[in-house]
Computed example of a mutant assay.
Amino acid sequence: MKILITGFDPFGKEKINPALEVVRRLPDEILEAKIIKLEIPTVFEKVGLTIEKAIKENQPDVVINIGQAGGRFAITPEKVAINLADARIADNAGYQPLDKTIFSDGKTAYFTQLPVKAMVAAMQAEKIPAEVSYTAGTYVCNYVMYYVQYLIDKKYPSLKGGFIHVPFIFEQVVGKPQQPAMNLNDMVIGLTAAIAAVVTHSKEDIKMVGGTEH
C-alpha cells in the first residue's frame, strides 16, 4: 500500500509551515504502508498539477494533504471540500481569486473517503488534541482537497483522498498573543496515528471486497 502525503511551503508572512515540517518528519513506513512525501506550492495555478503529476508517477492508494490552520487548537481532519476559491490573501504567486468556481463540471462539494472519526479517535488515544472539521476554508487548502476529490470523481475512482489541518507551532506564535500552538513532535505523533487509522481502515475495506493491495 502506498500513501502520498503532501505539505505546503510557507505562505503569507510566515517563514515556516508546520504542515511541511511535520510531513518531513513522518516515518517512511506506517503499518507496512509506504509513505511518499511531497512538498507542494501554495499557488492555486500550480498545486493541483503538481499533485496530479505525483499521482501519475507514484500510483498511490491514498492521498493525504496537510495544511496549516493558524488559530486552531487541534489537529483537524477535514470532512468536506467545496467548489469555491475565495482567498483572503494572495497566494505565493500573487494570485487572489475571489468567489471563483474551482471546476465548472465539479460537484458543489465532495466528502472525503477517509475515516475521519477513526483518525480523530486514534490521535486522541495518543493524547493529542484532535477533532473533525467541517470546513477546510476557501483558500489553497480547500482548493487542494477539492482538486484531489475532483480527480477521484473523474479519473481515479479507486483512489482515496483527504485533508488534515495542523495548528501553528510554538515559534510561529511568538509575539502573537492568544494564538494557540502545538509542539511539532506531538504533531508527528498525531499524524502517524491518524495515518495508521487510514491504513487499518483501508486494509479492512480490501478484505471485505476480497481485493488485493499494491
Rank of each mutant, 00 (worst) to 15 (best):
F44H: 03
K34R: 14
A109S: 15
A109M: 14
T135F: 09
D153Q: 11
T112M: 06
A125P: 08
L98R: 13
S158W: 04
G106Q: 02
Q59K: 14
I128K: 04
S133F: 12
R88H: 09
I36N: 05
V132Y: 08
L159I: 08
T112G: 03
I35W: 00
Q68M: 13
V120D: 02
F44N: 01
K107G: 10
T112H: 02
E39F: 08
I152E: 08
K100V: 14
A93W: 00
G67S: 10
K127N: 15
P60Y: 05
Y150W: 14
V43F: 01
N83G: 12
V132G: 01
I51M: 02
Y110I: 05
I82Y: 15
E39N: 13
P77Q: 09
I75N: 00
I35E: 01
I89Y: 06
A74D: 06
K79R: 15
Q149K: 12
I75T: 01
L49C: 12
A122H: 03
I89T: 11
E78H: 01
V80T: 14
I36D: 02
K37V: 11
V80L: 10
C141K: 10
N92G: 04
K107W: 06
I36R: 04
D61T: 10
P41E: 05
D105Y: 12
F163W: 11
V63N: 05
A121N: 15
D91M: 05
A125W: 12
F44L: 09
Q96E: 04
G71K: 05
P115C: 03
I66E: 11
D61M: 11
Q59E: 12
L38W: 02
A93L: 05
P157G: 14
I51N: 00
I51D: 00
K79W: 11
I36H: 02
Q124K: 14
I75M: 09
V144Q: 02
T112A: 05
A130C: 03
M145I: 01
Y147G: 01
S133V: 11
Y110Q: 06
S158V: 10
T42A: 12
K107E: 15
D99H: 09
K100A: 07
Y134A: 05
A122R: 04
F44P: 01
A93K: 11
D61F: 06
F44Y: 08
I40R: 00
V116F: 03
V148N: 04
Y134N: 10
Y146C: 04
I35K: 03
I35F: 00
S104D: 15
F103P: 00
V47K: 00
G137E: 04
I64T: 00
E39V: 10
I55A: 04
K34V: 13
I102V: 12
I64C: 01
P77I: 07
A81C: 10
V140Q: 02
V144D: 01
K37N: 07
D91A: 03
L98E: 12
F103D: 08
V148Y: 03
K127V: 06
P129M: 11
F163M: 14
C141G: 14
T76E: 13
C141T: 09
V47W: 00
C141H: 08
T42E: 04
V47D: 02
E57I: 15
I36S: 08
E131Q: 13
T138H: 03
